[in-house]
Design a protein around this nucleic acid. Structure first.
Length: 572
RNA sequence: GCCCCCGUAGCUCAGGCGGAUAGAGCAUCAGAUUCCUAAUCUGAGGGCCGUGCGUUCGAAUCGCGCCGGGGGCACCA
């Protein structure tokens, strides 16, 4: 079924068109204030202005066109020409009962399913994942889950950095500095050590830097020894990445890293030149955008003076592959906002080339420490993701132990994992991704406010109601009667039926914080309801309705958090 | 120099393709538990929405200028 706001929008827009003879949006949205009802249409005033009519008069004529048998609400005119709708409580009760019988919680699949490639995470091989990768990973995973739930064909692709300049240094380091015991013990840590050491040497000694470039060149020409080393680095890194992704419950359909596109790069540059899109300039081959005022003056280099290709080239090959092979209608790049110019250039080049799926750069800001500076360790190094997740779990465990000393170690471990990881993810997802975000353990793990533990607690508390009532297997009966009488019951039900609108808004804007905000509002409305009304001890007629409200709230929170990549607990 | 993002309550942030009295959490103060997890809830105070001009019946939201913070701009990714 369409969402109620979609229905009101459609019916009101039809009425506007019937009266004015011209299509105009009704601009239906939830009311700013409950005194105005549940939904308001703002479009009448704009339509009146366009026709130089009195808005209230026009509103009267529009109302006359609305058919009460097709709209489950009452309505009136208010203010300068708003139409206010009040939902029919009986209809609301029936709708809630119908949703209870629906696996998808009343959410339609999109009518036009698209093939959407979501490109996110993309750590560099031979380097540990650090905080810089967390936003892309978490946001990309959440968007993928939402789009998939809405019915799109989603392809997640981890475009790992497996062909960069770091390999020259890694090979030099492996040959000159490797501690074999350390490597056998913790290969990634030893790789990191030698990488940093060679990097430092290279800065001080040009000969080392030259050696690294030479080894890289040999690798890129297919030298067997260097290639074998490269495979070893890959395998070691992949294991470390997989451990982190397992903790985060993030998976990918493909791991098509930069190296995968390597054989295609000469052809990309060749084609761009043949089509007259790229030309030689100062020894490099570049795409220019003289006819584009925004990009004019920012050449897009696809081949360096020395003949090497760049990430611009790889990214173009990647678009080609995703269109030709996956038949992508849409590609979403979840990458730091600082790369905005690169993506503008990339998308412009792809369009000129003739590859024109919908291309979207979903950017995000920097993670700042509590001091407002980009987050770093005391030593000024990036914080490793694994260490960050360890700390999240430790802190969550300590809080859980403090709140509930009777928990067993196994229970504590489960809570530490679900709450700790959930808190880290949710803290990122609840913010507008465009802004920089200030990382705060205390805030993300707080039980008050818009946090994962708050939502997880509401879920656990609801599950506890059913346990306490020995109703673990309780299920709503098909077509059961639902009596929504108390204002808190009505408010909760009205919030539930906005879930679909929230998901569509996430799809439209690529902003998971809209879903997070929805869930927080839902949890708050549940708490208001639960505070005001007993459930298990209620009289029978109210009891089954309230059990249904509890049951559905839990399902919405479970599903909503799942779409954000966050787990729930039966007890905490 | 050019371009992009940000500026909303003491603090951290929502809202932003114009709509009615600008919201939440923290912090502060005052309350609620014979009762289903008080890890909860209720109430109060707290705002020239950086600033000026403009568009509009209507601007936190759109446009232009300015101020402040961050970022990007030819061979790294």
């Amino acid at each position: 079924m369409p969402t109620i706001s979609q229905l009101l929008e459609e019916k009101t827009a039809q009425a506007i068109a019937a009266v004015t003879g011209a299509a105009a949006p009704a601009l239906v949205q939830p009311t700013a204030n409950p005194q105005f009802g549940d939904y308001q249409a703002n479009g009448v005033m704009a339509a009146a202005k366009a026709r130089k009519m009195n808005p209230r008069t026009l509103a009267q004529q529009i109302l006359a066109q609305l058919d009460p048998t097709t709209i489950p609400a009452t309505w009136d005119i208010a203010g300068p020409g708003f139409i206010n709708f009040r939902l029919d409580p009986v209809w609301l009760g029936r709708t809630i009962a119908a949703i209870a019988a629906d696996e998808r919680l009343g959410i339609d699949s999109v009518s036009q399913a698209e093939t959407i490639v979501v490109d996110f995470s993309a750590p560099n091989i031979a380097k540990p994942m650090h905080v810089g990768h967390i936003r892309s990973t978490i946001i990309g995973d959440a968007l993928s889950r939402v789009l998939r739930f809405l019915g799109h064909r989603v392809i997640t692709d981890n475009h790992v950095g497996d062909w960069g300049t770091q390999f020259g240094m890694m090979i030099v380091g492996y040959r000159t500095l490797l501690n074999r015991e350390a490597f056998a013990d913790d290969p990634l840590a030893e790789m990191e050590r030698i990488y940093k050491a060679v990097q430092a040497q290279g800065k001080a000694d040009p000969a080392v830097a030259a050696q690294a470039r030479e080894e890289l060149a040999k690798l890129q020409k297919g030298d067997p020894e260097n290639t074998a080393l490269w495979h070893e680095f890959m395998a070691v890194s992949r294991q470390a990445f997989d451990r982190v992704y397992a903790r985060l419950h993030v998976g990918f359909d493909h791991w098509l890293g930069e190296s995968f596109y390597n054989p295609m790069l000469p052809g990309v540059v060749q084609t761009l030149q043949t089509k007259g899109l790229a030309r030689l300039s100062e020894g490099a081959i570049c795409v220019f955008y003289e006819d584009d005022p925004e990009l004019n003056g920012t050449p897009f280099i696809v081949q360096k003076q020395d003949g090497a290709f760049l990430y611009a080239t790889t990214d173009l090959a990647t678009i080609q592959y995703r269109v030709d092979t996956f038949h992508a209608d849409r590609i979403i790049y979840v990458v730091d906002s600082r790369q905005q110019l690169h993506f503008k250039q990339l998308f412009a080049a792809a369009r000129r080339w003739g590859y024109a799926p919908q291309l979207e750069h979903v950017g995000f800001g920097t993670i700042l420490g509590e001091d407002g500076r980009p987050i770093k360790t005391r030593e000024g190094e990036p914080i490793k993701l694994a260490a960050l997740l360890d700390e999240a779990e430790e802190r969550a465990r300590a809080i859980a132990r403090d709140k509930n000393p009777s928990l067993s170690e196994d229970e504590l471990a489960a809570i530490a994992h679900v709450v700790g990881i959930g808190a880290v993810k949710y803290a990122d997802l609840m913010q507008n991704r465009l802004a920089d975000y200030r990382f705060s353990w205390d805030k993300m793990l707080a039980l008050e406010g818009n946090t994962a533990p708050y939502l997880q607690y509401v879920y656990a508390r609801i599950r506890s109601i059913f346990r306490r009532g020995e109703l673990e297997d309780w299920q709503p009966t098909l077509g059961m009667d639902v009596y929504l009488r108390a204002p808190e019951e009505l408010d909760l039900a009205k919030q539930m039926i906005r879930f679909g609108d929230a998901l569509l808004e996430v799809e439209r804007t690529n902003k998971p914080n809209i879903l997070a905000g929805y869930l927080y509002d839902l949890a708050t409305k549940f708490n208001l309801f639960y505070q005001a009304h007993s459930v298990l001890k209620a009289e029978e007629e109210a009891r089954s309705t309230r059990l249904l409200l509890c049951h559905l709230t839990a399902r919405y929170i479970h599903k909503g958090l799942e779409l954000l990549g966050i787990e729930t607990l039966e007890a905490m």
